[in-house]
Structures are given as C-alpha cells and as structure tokens.
Design a protein around this nucleic acid. Structure first.
Lengths: 229, 229
DNA sequence: TTAAACTTTTAATATTTTGTAAATAATAAA
DNA sequence: TTTATTATTTACAAAATATTAAAAGTTTAA
C-alpha cells in the first residue's frame, strides 16, 4: 500500500489525519518539525506528503520547494490561513493541492486518493511494477508475455510480441522498417527487412478489426509504421 | 504553447474562458456539445480539457470517462452544482479537478497552469526533445509525422511533409526551386524542377484557405518560394 | 528424431506516391 | 498592348512502396 508522510506540529491534528488515513489502508508516519520532516521526506520512500505551512524549525514554503527539487511525489499543503493558497501558487513551489483548516478527514482522504491515483497513472508506477503496457484496449503483460485484445487473450509468437510491445510502448512515433529491425532483431544479424512487413501483417491479423484499415498500427507510406494513439 | 479544449454549451461562459486563457498565451478551441466534444478531444492534439458536466448530446460523466480511457491529459470538470463534486469523485472518472460555477477566470487560469505544470513534470514532456514545429496555426509533429492545420489533422505524403517542414522551419527565407529540390530530393544532379511546383500546389491545397491567394507559402516571382511569417 | 511451430525469403499483386507533359494563367519587360 | 517568361493546374503514366500468400528454412518441444 502507499506510504504517507505527515509533517505537522499540532499533534492532535496529525493523529487524527493518521487515524483516518490508516482506515483507508495507508501506511502513515508523522514528523512534527520542518527540518526533520524535510530530512525524512528526502530520505524515506514515501508516495505522498501532507505538509503544514506553519512549522517550527523551518519555513513550510522552503520545505515544499526542497522536497520538490528532489522528488516528484504529490505534496498536499495544509494551512490555517486562506490567503496562503494564493501565496503558494504565486511562489510556484510545486505543491499539488492546498487545504485550509479546518477540513474534514474524509475530504483529506479523498484528495490523497485522487492524487495517488493520478500519480500512478502519469508515472506508470503501478503498471511498471507488473510490467504491463496498456493502450487503447490492448493489454500487454510483459512478464507473462501475454496479450489481451479487448479483454480476450490472443497468442503471439516471440517476434510478434516484441514488435507489438515496442510499438505500443512508443506510440505516435514513426519507425522505419530498418529501425524496427535493428530494435527487435539482433544488431549484427543480417537479414532482409521484408520480414518486418510480414510480422506487421501477422500482428494486424490479431489486433485489427479490419486489416485493410488498420486502427492501431498505421502505415506511413514511404517511411514506416506508427502505433496510433 | 499548450492547447486547450473547452467543452461547454453556454457560449458566453465558453467565450469568457477562452478570452482569459488566450491572454495567457494558450491556444483554445470550443466545442458546445458532448458528443462532438468527445470526438474532438480524442482526435485532436490537446494538452488539457475543460469539461462542463451539463451538456446536450451526451452525459458529462460519460465524456470524462471516455476521454480518460484514451488520454492521460488533465481534465478539469466544471459544474453548477456543488454536490456533483462528490459524485465525480465517487465514480472515479479520472477527472483531475473540479470547479463550481460561478468561478473567477483568474482562478481557472491558475488551475490550468498548475495542472499543465504538473503534467509536464510527471510525464517528462518538457524533458523530451520536442521536435514540434509550430508556426501560424500550423503544427508539425516531426516524430509522429503528423500535421495539424488549425488543430485539425491533415494527411501529407512523404515529399509534401518534408517540403512543408523544411519551409516552416525556415520561415521568411526565399528558396529557389533548385534549392528546394536539392534539399528535399537530395540529389546533386539538376533534375526536373517542375515537380517542386506541383508539390507546392499539393501542399497549398491542404494548408491554404484560398489557393489563389496563399497566406503561408508565397511565390516570389522569378525567384522561388517563401514561408511567410 | 520427428512433427509442429515459427521465421524468413520470395514473388506476384495491389496501392500510393511521384514525376512528366501539356494546357492555362499570371507577371514583367519591351 | 504585345510578347516572352514564369507559375499554376490538371490528368495520367511510371515508379516506388506495401501487402499478401505461399514456399523454404529454422527452431523448438514432445
């Protein structure tokens, strides 16, 4: 599950937040000062930070900026003053969200979840762990070397699998047959790039609704192929 | 420069949003119905979508979900009802932010900027070499070999693409047909120059509003052609 | 070891792009 | 205005490139 760091000097608030987050299966740690909180955030392996602006030991703005310089994880700023929101924004600290006290714990949990979901989506952390490529209804499980087209598993040979995976992992990029050949086949292997064409056809037969009008792997006449997204 | 799609049926609101966003140098397009908006979002090359929940032609929830299935770009939901926020969250549609009407335009702009910044940070878009040529409403994606005229994709053959790209990358420079021929066809021999003329015509048919009065590729009589800027 | 599965090569066919040529239009110079 | 020069446009044939099917090799697994 996800690990969350709360940097907050008011113990009661920190504990309340922790309790609610733990109810949602999060793993939570608390630091009660700015300097220690910053150190912990940089050193620890957290997925999200909840950072109070008013802190002993360091300026909250500064802490936020420093974390952002090192980490891309979501930072949720908390402040008692509504005016601070504009300030945070204006300074371009890289905070992801702002909440003014008092706020409901469920609101906090909802926001935390939303940020984690987005972070996973954009960085692909979630998928990378399982080595899954998912794009336009095509799911490629790289570890198991399985391909699902609209949920249905289809069999792919080694070369077909590698070629499709490479294209799906680099969508919207036109590759020449030579480039694809070099990528999938061994660098030094001498061969005719015509085999790329044949494999593209085989893949199309398995993933396209109408092979004559490919919706996934497009032909860029005179150049090469492109996985359309 | 980022491209933003507004899906909103109230024209006054859409125009207001557009004006403010354009003041911040964004490129903005408006769709006033759900179905057309969805189609545009999926087909077009946008960096962010602002989506009104109450729409004719389709359910706003549905539109959001469909966009998210295909694209990872930030989606900013707008609604008149405050209760909708919880609903959006609960349904897990993948929206990135929610605003209730009425809201201040500057607030909108601030949020849009924040989302785009985060998106760039997490996807690393800004790190990747952007081989995108953008000039006077013409966007050329060299990696994908795609051309958008006022946001709409048009098909270009290899020679057309190369020729247009070369001219667009070197605007305001007059090239003789011989120079263009040597550049695109890369032959040392003086071949038949007439083919350049024909290709210029083909390109003009795709990019010019009125082929007889070219606004992009000008003819410099007796000399050659120039991409006007 | 053999059969099946996979990969590569080959060649015929289909498709798209490109170059050419000829007619027409526009411009500059006489 | 007339003429010579240069550009535009059109249509079509030729060239280039992609698709497809099938045969020939190659590898893999029983």
């Amino acid at each position: 599950m996800s690990r969350i760091l709360i940097i907050e000097d008011e113990e009661a608030i920190a504990d309340l937040e922790k309790d609610y987050l733990e109810l949602s299966e999060f793993e939570v740690e608390i630091e009660n000062a700015g300097d220690t909180g910053l150190a912990r955030a940089l050193e620890g392996d957290f997925d999200l930070v909840i950072l109070d602006l008013m802190l002993p030991g360091a300026d909250g703005f500064e802490v936020c900026k420093k974390i952002r310089e090192e980490k891309n994880i979501p930072i949720l700023m908390v402040s008692a003053k509504k005016d601070d929101i504009d300030k945070i924004r204006g300074l371009g600290l890289g905070a992801d969200d702002y909440m003014t006290k008092p706020f409901s714990p469920s609101e906090l949990v909802a926001r935390v979840k939303a940020h984690l979901t987005r972070y996973d989506r954009l960085t692909g952390t979630h998928n990378k762990e399982n080595d899954i490529v998912e794009i336009r209804g095509i799911r490629i499980d790289k570890t198991a070397r399985r391909v699902y087209i609209d949920g249905e598993e289809k069999n792919f040979t080694t070369k077909e699998f590698d070629l499709l995976t490479f294209l799906a992992e680099n969508p919207n990029h036109v590759y020449t047959k030579e480039e694809l050949f070099r990528e999938i086949w061994d660098m030094d292997s001498i061969g005719d790039i015509a085999t790329v064409t044949v494999h593209i056809k085989k893949i199309r037969e398995k993933i396209e609704f109408d092979t004559a009008k490919p919706q996934y792997i497009e032909t860029i006449w005179g150049v090469g192929y492109r996985f359309k997204v």
